[in-house]
Amino acid sequence: MDGRPVLVCTESEDATADLVIAELNRRQVSVLRFDPGRDFPARATLTARITAGGWEGRLTVGERAADLSAVRSLYHRRPSPYPADSGEQVARFTAQENRRGLGGVLGALPGCLYLSHPQAIARAEYKPAQLAAAIRAGLTVPATLITNDPGEAKAFCAAQPTIYKPLHAGAYEVQGEPAGIWAAPVGEGEVDGGVSRCAHLFQARVSKVADVRAVVVGEEVFSALITSPPGVVDWRAEYRNLSYEPVVCPDALRGGLMRFLAGFGLNFGAFDFAVTDDGAWWFLECNPNGQWAWLEAAAGLPVANAIADLLENGASPHD
């Protein structure tokens, strides 16, 4: 590949990444797209040597190859995990070697801008760390309890209207069908001994009039006001009944978003806020690799263009 390529690590079907790649193609920026967990080592070959200037060598995927020392940026979208489902010892070993070998080299490229670095994304996915970082950044956070003590949970729910939300949005099935676990109201009488089986997150319910998703790309903030039917706690459960409009992020809040991302070393974040009738934005969570593509048309937010700008500018290999 000629020039300084952009690496895009994502699964084979990713409409969000497609928007960014299409914009980079329009700008005639070289792009190497691949899925580490699926393509390596079946379709991809890595040859990397350590030098005084960092890692040098080539990553070849099919008939295309990228000079590792010339990569200007890496867009870590949503790659498949390195397969380790098999209980066989060899399968587990190779999966870990691939993750630490290929993944380790890709995470240590000289002069490469990461959107964002995989290790930074992993750190920021922990909700307890997010909430603590949000408070340090000056954002307003609802009262929150994480516990496996049913008595503590009952007391918290008795003190104020409360919601329960999962600490991780992992795969879940109901009667064999994929299902989401949304944030939902929970009362004192609904708390039972099942709480003792794992950590649970309980949070004071914000009396909101709308929600906001604020997508931060580098130094730019794109915000959409999301209006859902009355009484809806988690707007993700009502996609067909939502309305969107662009909204300006308050200047005082913008600084908090930048401090939050800087604390984790992120160049991107999809923040969710609950908005009350007095105009206050209450921090709920930040997805360090969250979705935004549907907001391009729904709210007129040019996020793909901003991401392409960041990836195209990249970083000097001598920085």
Rank of each mutant, 00 (worst) to 15 (best):
F271D: 07
P150D: 08
L113A: 14
P185L: 01
I307D: 04
E219I: 01
L225C: 14
Y244A: 12
D277E: 15
R33T: 11
E11S: 06
S116T: 08
E219M: 05
L253W: 15
R78H: 05
Q160F: 05
Q203H: 02
S243F: 05
G180E: 11
L261R: 14
C112W: 08
R58E: 08
E238Q: 13
Y239A: 15
P317C: 03
E97Q: 12
V105T: 08
G265L: 14
L74S: 03
L102T: 10
D2L: 13
V216H: 04
A293Q: 14
V195K: 05
R26K: 10
L74P: 11
D85A: 12
Y114T: 07
A134P: 13
L301K: 13
A95Y: 04
P36A: 07
I135D: 00
F264Y: 12
Y239M: 15
W294R: 14
E177A: 08
N287F: 02
E88V: 00
L145A: 11
Y239V: 15
V233S: 14
L68W: 00
F271A: 06
V275R: 04
E173T: 11
D272I: 14
T94V: 13
Y114H: 07
N305Y: 13
Q96F: 10
E245W: 00
L46P: 10
L68C: 06
L284Q: 11
K154D: 00
V212R: 09
F273R: 11
H318D: 10
Q175K: 06
P150N: 09
I226D: 09
E296T: 15
S80T: 11
V215K: 09
F34C: 03
A237N: 03
A270S: 15
A270G: 08
S207Q: 14
A15I: 11
S223K: 01
V206Q: 00
A274K: 10
G193T: 08
D18P: 08
L311S: 09
L115E: 07
P302R: 12
I226Q: 08
G314H: 07
L46Y: 03
R38L: 02
V216A: 10
A132W: 04
G87N: 06
G111D: 03
A48G: 01
H117Q: 06
S207W: 02
N267R: 10
N287Q: 06
P161A: 04
E245T: 14
G176A: 02
P250C: 12
L301N: 13
M1P: 14
P166C: 01
